[in-house]
Structure formats: structure tokens, C-alpha cells
Amino acid sequence: MISIQSMQTLFMNAIFENLEKPVATNELGKHLTYNERLSVDEQISIYRDSVFGGLIMALQEIYPVCHKLVGQDFFDFMATQYINKHQSLSPDLTDYGEHLANFISHFKQADSLLYLSDVACLEWAWHRAFHARDHSGLNINKLNFLSEEQQENLVFKLPPGSALISSDYPIHKIWNANQQGNENDDVIDLDEGSVKLLVWRKKFDMHIDLLQEDEWAFLNKINQQEKFNYICETDEQSLDIALLLPQCVKQGWIADFYIFE
């Protein structure tokens, strides 16, 4: 008899081990009842296939555009390699898949799809914003009641779960062209230049907004949670803050503020 801890360690190892050297599978097999219809490996494979199938499906649901771009077989292959490298560390399956964009950027078999990693980055940002905390937007009137000292320590915030993404490729167009109902024969020029995007959610409407250089620079400062006063002082020469602040507030890109203490 082995302890629960030892059995479960063996079981987990059997599910995720290299099947060319099934050490844990063979060891676990010693503790299983003989089954005349299924070998030890077949019994464990039922669970192995379920685990991998469930995780692949989870990744496919988070990354539908990547899945569409590469097709089922390649996606399954890529996802399997990812699962072997990255464990799920949360009981919430929506937390799984965070590192896929980085994984793809080092995945040799996807070398020819230069934009795939950035599309994955966009899809993860979409996914996180979709599940992020709800917010009611910036109440601009509250700013009128700040003391001088509070104004000096004012820090603006982007919408919860929002993400700033830059890419050398028009990933917003690739994403859009691969949404259901948007399929057409329009050619996307991969060399049309880099893009800077903000992915965020306004109530229940998802947005992928294309940013100008100055908007990108300003929102990055906000995202780094720098005091507004400091941004005004240090970036006075390069950014037209008087123009950018109302513009970003109007768009809904600035969703809240707090006073740094």
C-alpha cells in the first residue's frame, strides 16, 4: 500500500510524463486492479486524454483566432507542447494560458507565422478584460473636490483588466477578420506598419482601440501609476497633456483615480 500523497504524485507524473519512458505509469500500474479489457497504460490514458483534452479545449476557447489561423491539428500539437511545459496553477481554468504568447514566440514550428505570438497576446488581453472587475467609469466631478495636496498626489487608473499592446503587425485587423461573420477575401498587408492598441471593456462591450503615439505614451505613464503631477512635469515638452487628458477621459480609457499616500 502507498500513501495518498505518493499515489497522487505517481498519478500526476503518469499523466504528464514522457510516454517514451513511462516510469510513473509502470509504477502506478503495480497498484491497480487487473483489468482484462484494458492495459495499465490504457486505463491511465483515459485520464491522460481527459486532462489534455480539457486543457486544450480551455486554450482553444481563450485563443479562438490563433486556433483558426493555424487549424485544429497544429493548434492541438502546439497546445500539447504548451501544457507539457506550463502547469495550471489555479482552480480557475480561466487563469490558464497566460504564457501562450511568449511560448509561441519561441516555438520553432510557428516561426513562419511572425504575427501569431502578438495575436495570442491580444487574445489573452481580451480574455482578461472580459472577466475583469466591473467599473462604472470616471466620475469627473469628484476631481473638483480634491484639495491642493490631493491634486499633487493624484494617480489616474486605466479600466480594470485593460492592456496596452504594441505589435509590428496589424493584429487588430487580423483579429477582426477572423471573427465570426467578418470573413472576407480582403488582404491584410503585414508590412503596413506597427500598431499600438488598448484592449479594455466598457460595461459589457469589449473594445480594441487603435492608439496614436502620444496617446500610447500618455496611457503608458498612467498604466505605470505615476502621479499625474509628475507626468505633467516630466513630459511637458513631449506630450500635450491639456489635450490628451480630456481626450482619454472622453474615450473612457481613464476609468478611475486614487490619491497616493
Partner: peptide, 25 residues
């Protein structure tokens, strides 16, 4: 059933032996 060990989640219902140790746990 169990779905995790050492905070590694399989997200799948996995079996265990019906022992006194499992019962206590």
C-alpha cells in the same frame, strides 16, 4: 475525487483508493 496536487491543477476528476487514510483525509 481529486483534481490537484501540490497546487498543480489537472482540472479533471481523478480517482483514489478507498482506504482509511483517504477516509480521514
Amino acid at each position: 475525487a481529486w483534481v490537484s496536487l501540490n497546487n498543480h491543477y489537472a482540472h479533471e476528476l481523478l480517482p483514489f483508493p478507498y482506504t482509511q487514510e483517504a477516509l480521514s483525509l
